[in-house]
Simulated assay, not measured.
Amino acid sequence: MDNSTLKKLSNFRKTLHQYPELSGEEKETAKRILEFFKDVPVDRTLTELGGEGIAFVFEGKEAGLTSLYRCELDALPIREQNQIPHLSKVSGKSHVCGHDGHMAIISGLGLKLAEKRPNKGKVVLLFQPAEETGEGAKAVIEGPKFEEIKPDFAFALHNLPHYDTHQVLIKKGAFATASAGMIIRLKGRNSHSAHPEAGNSPALAMSKIIVALEKLPEAMKKFSLVTVIHAKLGEIAFGTTPGEATVMATLRAFEDETRDLLIKYAEKLCQQIGKEYSLEVSFGYTEIFSATHNDSEAWNYGNEAAKRLGLKIKHVRVPFRWSEDFGLFSHHSKTLLFGLGSGKKQPQLHEPNFDFPDELIPTGVDIFWEIIEQLHH
């Protein structure tokens, strides 16, 4: 990649960084992507995919496979704490996951495809909304336009701090966990705080549930993890005992089936404790992610691309504990999600001082391009 192209993509990334939008609200980000691509000769542009999602289609002269390259539009509800000239201009929102950099990479891939189109088949560049909440991939796939871009292969990357810059982290099979946000509601009965025996406070049950939930994985045969992330007991009223409580937890496992079994055990546990204290117990779920599973054939293309570029490759043995909604594409296509090291001294993802390193942009473009060369030329 020449310096002028890198500067163009870097400037674009910094603009995206300054104007972050949360999941489901990516209207202006989508407009900026469309503006960037207005002079790029694509064959088809699809908008409003799963919300504000956009797909650009490049068609070859001959029939062939369809491959899709995906990045994310959304940012996080985190106040940025950085000393950089392109600091977020939107209070309480920031691109501290690096989605701005991922968008720059896929935009750079679009510039490269404009210069050298695929010989055969079809290449789709997908700018997907709402990855952070786990809703975006589902909305895109279930939308009426997905059949027009449904790929044989789908590829994505995520920058990974605390690994060498430009290092490729790759694995067959399970790569990132399945997870679900579990909301447990306990209902008892209020009373005057001078007469607590007249009511039925869920305080003890809530405390037991918090401790028991995090110990639950000890009974599981396969890896699982429960992290209690929030709890609320009653209201701030010193004359009243609490009548309701809420506990929220994130449940994780390397496979969808294990996550679902963990949910089943967690519900049973909460119901038993609720019964012990004569409480009503109900459940809700949010931010549900499928496990990200890498297909062996898609893995071969990614591994070969990294080898051709002479990049350092780390063959990951244990799946990552974080979740990615790209896993849903695995149900419809042969998929590969790989990591791209963003520096050993780089702050972790979702930390308030994270900023995507622009030097990764050419590397990301080149890896995807080498995959395209194998599939479409």
Rank of each mutant, 00 (worst) to 15 (best):
W299I: 03
E214M: 11
V42M: 07
D358C: 05
L311C: 07
K221P: 05
F368G: 01
F127W: 05
L16K: 07
I149W: 13
P144N: 06
Y69H: 14
L160D: 05
F58Y: 12
G181A: 05
K138S: 06
A237C: 13
K275Q: 08
K61Q: 04
L76P: 06
E142F: 02
H99I: 01
W299T: 00
A198K: 13
A139R: 13
L186S: 08
I361N: 10
D256I: 06
E324G: 10
L6I: 13
I183R: 14
L279D: 04
K264P: 10
C71I: 02
P129W: 05
V318D: 07
G243A: 12
N353G: 08
G339T: 03
T335N: 06
Q83I: 09
I54M: 03
R317I: 06
K268Y: 08
L169V: 13
K122N: 02
H332C: 07
S282Y: 08
Q128I: 08
K187V: 12
F58M: 06
E235S: 14
A154C: 13
G181N: 15
K27N: 07
F356G: 07
K221E: 15
G339C: 03
L157H: 13
S107W: 00
G136F: 01
Y285W: 10
A266K: 11
V124W: 00
M206N: 05
G173L: 10
K232Q: 15
A306Y: 01
T335I: 13
T240E: 15
Q128A: 02
T246I: 14
S179A: 15
L375P: 11
I229E: 12
E72R: 10
N159I: 12
K8R: 14
L262M: 13
K31E: 14
Q167D: 12
H293I: 14
K312N: 13
I183D: 13
E26F: 05
A156D: 04
F329I: 00
G64M: 01
